[in-house]
Design a protein around this nucleic acid. Structure first.
Lengths: 213, 213, 213, 213
DNA sequence: TATGAATGAGTTTTCATTCAT
DNA sequence: TATGAATGAAAACTCATTCAT
């Protein structure tokens, strides 16, 4: 029935509204500082309604994380697919640059992703949700792996295990982005993110190249 | 006076006992789950006493972090100083291996360090304490920078900015260690920490070497 | 009209389904622990529908109680009527035994009856409903009163006020059944329900008999 | 030290104050309707303080019950011990009358005792507390058992098992007191508590007497 | 008649921190 | 210096009931 459809639509919309409110509130005040009441108030629904759409406060956060991952994945996919004739190295640059951009444009989502590995978060959400998040985060890595594989086949790269190399590259990016996320540390190192990013990528890619051996 | 000295000594000891208790409790139950009461009980002092030695719960955590950093630094220093005649590359391997070992032997301290960058932690402790922690964490990096500098001077490495290269190396290590800290992810990647560590180090060092250009 | 009849029939059936679901849910989880949602789910109707058939959660419980009382009354009536030529004492034994059986076969209903006297239950249901329940519970007593009266007329019993004696007998039964309902207490008293029941009945009937005076 | 003593004394006093406040609040509004906030307000302490002295709301209730039992036991003991030369039957009358008086003077405590057997109360308090309550309630019964035993030895009573007879007597009293606690039921039965009590006691004691056989 | 989304007051419990002794 | 009793704000989550559709 049409009624059912409309209902489903409205339900989805309401859910989005709550998620949107939670995003604002969590990002403004921090997850721990923010209260479910805050979210309800911002979403202009009652507190009970929140629990009609989400199991717990943590579950909301998990869904925000999923949202962020989806956004990142979309951008990475776009970067990956954009130009078919790209060399593997160029493609890796594009992927990395996209990630860098994402981390700067959506610092909150990025911080959420980095925080995911830590804490008792895992214990507070359902196993399915947890695995779902992990799956998504692996997908980003898969794009890199594909590209490394391409580079190996094209003779650009000289590594044996594309998975491992991709992991190394991705881990490196994470490390750099996290390291440089702290302004005080940037100052102490007297290095800025952009050059550091460039240098690190150059370093790793140099390591990957055939001639390296 | 001797009395003063003894007093100071006892005060320091009491402080250590509290710290020790906090370490156990925080690591067992997690920082948020642990209560100051737990710490007081474990340290066999009253709750009020805790606040004679530390400003707040967060401050205790910060001092634990400092402790962890001191431990790591000691180990890194030892690894750095051990053999004077080491090549820069060998020395970097030793430093990295030491860091890897530390992350495995003291996973709780390691997690604490990684967590430091996140969250509202910064807002909950005094600015001095915060900077102190940052200073310490920079010192570790300095050892790496020194080594890279040595490599450049010796003609081993072919990079311009030792600070940046050291940062890249360290960031890479952090990234790998964090990435592989999650068992489920290790499984999904079907890669183990040890080979990943080796491969990543090899990759980055290859990128650093002269011949690379 | 036939339609009306069918409607009424269906309405009654739906009501019974809800009552049946409530019985299961309330008895399984306890009244307070059970939610109206549970009942609705079990009855396979929506929560709103529950309120089309019952005024409140408490009202459902009251109707369950009425159901239990009806069941007990039916059994008591049967026991009372079964053999016309029974002596009063034999008849009292049968009634008591029936009550005992009921308390064991339907412990939940029995507990509900015993709970009725307590708590703010009275304040939560309509006065009519409350009185209805009381009326029903009095009817059971009436059977006992009738029998005592019979015994007096037949010269079996030697008491003046049949109402009072019946009340005493019934109260005694209630007391015994409640006292022995607790397993831990049975253990502490090292007496089982059955012998206690027999002994108490024997005691009271002895007291009722003519020779007693 | 004197300080310790005073502290202990004050702690005990504070505990009593909370218990006193809880008694008032629970009895006025009913346990479920009453909130811990109410108790705290009445006791003029903060809510947190309540939980410094009692584990839970239910635990407070349990301690009130213990208080009531202690009071009842004191009165029963007094009645039991008062006159050494009493016959068993006279003594039973005194004990029963004392119980009756208690139920009228402290209807709230009495209701609490009757409620104890029901509900999920058992599941909400610690096993020790639960057993403690049960133990106390058994002690009252023990006085009756002692007296019945005395009657048997003196040749007054003609029963075999004093425990069982005492149980029957006590159960009977409980039954009568509960049955007659409801005003509406008293009205419907057109019997008042006092005569009912007298008649029931007479009935049961007649059943106990030697001549009965 | 039936639905089920929305409500929002209500409740227990926790815990970092303070302060009189 | 040490204690530990007291605080009281805070916060997540529940659920009976209503009402627009």
């Amino acid at each position: 029935m049409a009624t059912n459809e409309r209902r489903a639509r409205e339900k989805a919309r309401r859910r989005q509204e709550i998620l949107q409110a939670a995003r604002e509130v969590f990002f403004e005040r921090g997850f721990h500082q923010a209260t479910v009441d805050d979210v309800a108030f911002r979403a202009e629904v009652s507190k009970g309604t929140i629990y009609l759409y989400f199991e717990s406060k943590e579950s909301i956060l998990a869904h925000l994380l999923l949202e962020g991952l989806a956004l990142l994945l979309a951008q990475l996919n776009e970067a990956y697919a954009a130009h078919q004739s790209l060399s593997a190295e160029e493609r890796l640059w594009r992927l990395a640059r996209t990630y860098l951009d994402f981390s700067q444009t959506h610092p909150n989502y990025f911080r959420l992703m980095m925080a995911f590995d830590r804490g008792r978060f895992r214990e507070q959400i359902s196993a399915e949700l947890y695995e779902q998040i992990l799956q998504q985060s692996i997908r980003a890595l898969d794009l890199v792996t594909q590209t490394v594989r391409q580079g190996i086949q094209a003779g650009e790269f000289a590594c044996d295990d594309p998975k491992m190399s991709a992991g190394a590259l991705w881990a490196t990016l994470n490390g750099v982005l996290v390291l440089m996320a702290n302004p005080l540390r940037r100052q102490m190192l007297s290095v800025e993110l952009e050059p550091m990013f460039e240098a690190t990528m150059a370093l790793v890619l140099r390591g990957l190249r055939r001639a390296a051996n």
